[in-house]
């Protein structure tokens, strides 16, 4: 197990989630909620918040207990930890924001199987101490919120003619139907790839979804 030890600053761990390894635009993880709930900016934002809460809490907990968990049962343990936080988030939304809970429907419980969270737990939180794990989860979480909010905003403007419930245009119905989600996401990814090609040609960007220097390919 020759592990290449690359030391990264906390700032790097935070920023990579926002742009270089953005969970939605670069790693293409968590596509199900990304496509399904972003019919409006507020839905996208709420979904992002709920997912980030689960991501940050479970990354921290997994990082704390990482040395106690035998590797054979690690996935089962992670899922239980994740499921606990998802249920908490679900109950919290149902109790305090019934409207949002109704709009997100089954996608809140489905955070359990969101690959961003299990992905971060497996490749990052289980191999790093608490602070880097927290910062990594925070960066990924904010990256996810940003992506969902941007997608939701674009679809809301074009599809319903409103922004966060304000403003009025003549709407384009396709944009809030499933087809609109694919069109918007595809164009956004194309645009980001274009920017990336233009600006960061000489810098070696990690090939996603394998995270930078975390030894994700190692087999135990």
């Amino acid at each position: 197990m020759a592990k290449i030890k690359v030391k990264h600053t906390l700032f790097f761990e935070f920023v990579k989630g926002l742009w270089d390894e953005s969970p939605v635009f670069r790693q293409l993880l968590g596509m199900c909620p990304t496509l399904a709930v972003t019919t409006s900016a507020i839905n996208g934002f709420s979904m992002g918040m709920a997912t980030s809460f689960v991501l940050i809490c479970s990354s921290v907990i997994i990082s704390i207990v990482r040395k106690l968990i035998p590797s054979q049962v690690r996935i089962a343990s992670y899922i239980v930890v994740i499921a606990t936080f998802v249920t908490m988030a679900d109950l919290f939304l149902k109790g305090n924001f019934p409207e949002i809970s109704k709009a997100l429907g089954p996608f809140v419980p489905l955070i359990v199987v969101n690959c961003i969270i299990l992905g971060r737990a497996e490749v990052f939180a289980s191999r790093h101490s608490v602070i880097p794990a927290f910062v990594d989860a925070l960066g990924m979480g904010i990256g996810f919120i940003l992506a969902l909010t941007v997608l939701g905003t674009i679809r809301e403007i074009l599809g319903s003619g409103t922004i966060f419930g304000f403003l009025q245009f003549e709407p384009m119905v396709i944009m809030i139907l499933p087809g609109g989600a694919f069109i918007t996401l595809g164009l956004l990814i194309a645009f980001i790839n274009y920017l990336k090609d233009k600006t960061k040609r000489e810098e070696v960007a990690p090939a996603c979804p394998v995270p930078y220097g975390s030894g994700a390919s190692e087999v135990k």
Partner: peptide, 29 residues
């Protein structure tokens, strides 16, 4: 034995946390 203990402990903790959370949010729901 270690695997069993670890999973059991995690299960118990998560169960208790959820029970408390449920009791807290049920009246609101």
């Amino acid at each position: 034995l270690k695997m069993i203990v670890v999973l059991t402990v995690i299960g118990i903790i998560s169960g208790s946390v959820l029970a408390i959370m449920y009791q807290w949010s049920l009246p609101k729901i």
